[in-house]
Design a protein around this nucleic acid. Sequence first.
DNA 1: TATTAATATTTAACATGTTATGTATTGCGG
DNA 2: CCGCAATACATAACATGTTAAATATTAATA
Lengths: 168, 168
Amino acid sequence: MTAPPTTPPSTQAKPDDLRAFSRSLPMALLKAREAVMARFRPLLREHDLTEQQWRVLRALTTLDGLRAGELARASCISMPSLSRILKTLEKRGLTARTAEDGDLRAVQIAITGEGRRLVARIGPHSEQRYAEITQAFGARRLEDLYAQLEALTACLTADGEPPLADED
Amino acid sequence: MTAPPTTPPSTQAKPDDLRAFSRSLPMALLKAREAVMARFRPLLREHDLTEQQWRVLRALTTLDGLRAGELARASCISMPSLSRILKTLEKRGLTARTAEDGDLRAVQIAITGEGRRLVARIGPHSEQRYAEITQAFGARRLEDLYAQLEALTACLTADGEPPLADED
DNA sequence: TATTAATATTTAACATGTTATGTATTGCGG
DNA sequence: CCGCAATACATAACATGTTAAATATTAATA
C-alpha cells in the first residue's frame, strides 16, 4: 500500500518509500543547483556580492532602466527581496533609482558606472567558471539539460493548475 | 527602447550577452524548482508546514533515530537551519531529541507518533501531486531528467575543484 | 468630482540559507 | 592527568524567500 507510483526502472530492494524520498524532484534540482553554485560563490564572495545581487547587476547590464517589477521578473527575485537588495546596492553606489515620468508609482532602476565596472571585472571570471562546467559536463549534454529544464518549467507553469482552489 | 521583456518566447536578435544571462544554468534550475514546488506548497501550507520541515519529517519517517548531522545531509538542510527547524518541530510535538549513549555530543532525532500521523495524512496527497507532474511531463522524460541532474551533480561535486584557493 | 478598484512598490513578520563563532564532549599526545 | 586538536551541535549576524499588509498613485465609475 502507498506504493510510490513512480516505479522507476532500476530499483533495488529498499524500504518502500525511502526511495521515493531520495528520488524527490525538488531535491534533485536543489542538489544540482547547489553543485553549480558552489563553483560561482567563491568568486562572488571575493567581491562581496551575493548570488542575487549578482543576478540583479547582471540583468541591469543588459537591460538598463527597467522598472522594479520587470527587473524582479528578469532576475527571478521576488519584489520584497528586490526592494531590500536595491537598498544595499544603492548604498554601495552600484545602482540608482529614478522615478518614472508618466507614472509616479513606478521606479526605474539603473546601473551606475561603478556598477558596470564591477560587472566588467567579475564577468570574465564568471564566464570561465561557466566554461569549466560546460567542459566537465559536456556542451551537448548541457544544451539537452537546458531544453529539458525549460520544457519542465513550461509544462508546469503553462496551465494544469486551476487558478485558485477553494477552502482556506 | 528598453522594451519590457515580459515573456519573450522565441529568442530573437538581442544584445549579445543578454542570452548568456537568461541562459544561466542556476536560473534554469531555479525556475524549474520553483515550478515544481508551486505544486506542493499549497498542500504543505494547509498543514502549516514549510518545504524544509516537510523534508525533515519525510526523512525521519524512513530513517528514524538519525543523528542531527546525518539528518541534515539526508534532507539537504544545513546544520544551522536544521537546529532551528527542529526547535519548531519539537514545539509542535512532531519530533524529539534524545542524547546518544556512547557520545554525549551527539543527538538522535526521532519522529513522534503525532509526526507520523501528520506525514501519513499528507503523504497520499503529496504522491498525487507527484503523479500529476509525472503524467504532465512524461514518466520517461522525468527519469531521463533525474539521470541528467544526478550526473551533473556528481560531475561537479566529485572533484574538479582544488580544495582551496589562496588569497584571503 | 468623489468613490472605489487596480497598479507599483515598500514594509513587516517569520522561516531559512550562509558564514563565522561558541560550547560541550571526545580522543590523543605528552 | 593535562593540554589540545577534532568532533557534534548550537547560536549569532546578516541576507534572502514567502506571505500578508501598508502606501502611494493611477484608472475606472458612479
